[in-house]
Write a protein that binds this DNA or RNA. Structure first.
Lengths: 257, 257
DNA sequence: GGGTATTTGTCCGTATGTATT
DNA sequence: AAATACATACGGACAAATACC
């Protein structure tokens, strides 16, 4: 009984949710009702509910009440499918999403040319401050925000090799990877992913419509792709809200699996 | 200025932190000082700080003050190294951690025999309720809690094939994968990982010493391993605190990379 | 559309407890 | 022992969103 009152209230409600006595979508007692039954003030009850909100167990709606959150049906993304096929992430995204009987859409890329920041230069094996092409896209599934993706390419691909479509602000329908292979013989033969989880920034909170308190984490994938000479040709940074996405990666699984 | 006062205070502090005016480890003004400068009540200031705490930007210590959190040096775990070597995760963990000049330790496994729950049965392609062997370990790096791992094996490996060491509550130093290959010709030739991020449960909060409010997410990896006949031989569930771990996975990267 | 009741959101002030210095 | 700073708890007032008549 050493626990403070607000936590005892929160733990009690959490147990009711986990035992199913408060089912998904069910309304919790109002703050005033909880205050009465626990002989607590409304402020204390609100502290308890705040904790459940941070734990993503409930959501409160002004004028309506507080409800047990429904489980989200996750979108499953296969991080390893790409390299098997040499398809490139852009095309792969459309294939994957359609396979789950959902509808993909992505915005026309925003294209910029920038001096490479430290991380980008390091991953692309460029001198710091070298020019890089940046292509940024918003992706949707069933018109719901799904991911934000930014790809960085060495500017040499354009200036030396002549890959001019990289700097056009238009979707490359076949995928940049196939474009680079077909036109310039640059093949993506391998990649390395670095995966981190962190709190969202403001633009992510806005785009994904995340709760303001930042309790929904962001899943961030840095993918460095290499060509047949072992040179890095691209860094792709993709972020997803962690509450509605699962990821798969596999090594040499048998068919079906 | 439509934003409520507590959020304006929080955003102002957050900008100061991001601009470095409040450096890592620096102490914020006390709640009373902030209340005075913003003409707000202490309760409102506390609401603001609560938001920064949820966003993992600051941490409060009674009697001392509230401080900007220091960045954590992450432990990097390679999710794909294992299958290249056929080493098995257990041995790989020791190799990986030592390579980062840190000290690994894991507890003696807790071994149980259980009827398979739905997920386990499905991943191991067993009839629901079939017996499975469960081996649970706590892992440490530099004596700090690092991961919790539970592996499930079909009981047939013991009853039919005679892999009796699976049900001994003792570390299999060479790794279960090498044990199964050496003694029984069962080779792990492939795997599939499913990765999710979720809020911690009570035992995870306790083991990893996570803050009670549950704002630190848990990174969860379900790895199903397959033998040379395409049969699943193991399901390993590993959980890590998302705030201090990064993950790498790669496909066919050139040497060094 | 308007008005009213309900419910959560914001903000205030105060008092007391607990951890740290 | 005393001072400082955050933690818990109370209660009240009004605002904002929603639902319903």
């Amino acid at each position: 009984m050493a626990d403070p009152l607000y936590r005892r209230i929160a733990d009690s409600l959490q147990r009711e949710i986990e035992r199913g006595e408060l089912a998904e979508g069910a309304q919790l007692p109002t703050e005033q009702e909880l205050a009465d039954t626990w002989n607590a003030s409304r402020s204390t009850v609100r502290d308890a509910i705040k904790q459940l909100t941070t734990r993503a167990l409930v959501e409160a709606h002004p004028g309506q009440g507080t409800f047990v959150r429904r489980k989200i049906i996750p979108i499953v993304t296969d991080l390893s499918a790409t390299h098997d096929l040499g398809t490139g992430e852009a095309a792969q995204y459309y294939i994957d999403v359609r396979r789950q009987r959902r509808t993909p859409r992505s915005t026309v890329p925003r294209v910029e040319i920038q001096p490479a920041k430290e991380l980008v230069a390091s991953e692309l094996a460029l001198a710091p401050g070298s020019q890089v092409v940046l292509r940024h896209q918003q992706r949707f599934v069933d018109e719901e925000p799904y991911s934000l993706q930014t790809s960085f390419y060495p500017m040499q691909l354009v200036t030396v090799r002549g890959a001019n479509r990289l700097i056009e602000a238009a979707d490359i329908e076949e995928g940049t990877i196939q474009y680079l292979r077909r036109e310039f013989g640059v093949e993506q033969v391998g990649y390395r992913d670095v995966i981190t989880v962190r709190t969202p920034n403001v633009s992510e909170t806005t785009f994904f419509l995340l709760p303001e308190d930042g309790h929904v984490a962001i899943f961030e994938n840095f993918r460095t792709s290499y060509d047949q000479h072992g040179e890095p040709i691209r860094l792709t940074v993709t972020v997803y809200p962690a509450d509605r996405n699962w990821f798969i990666t596999s090594g040499n699984v048998p068919a079906v699996g």
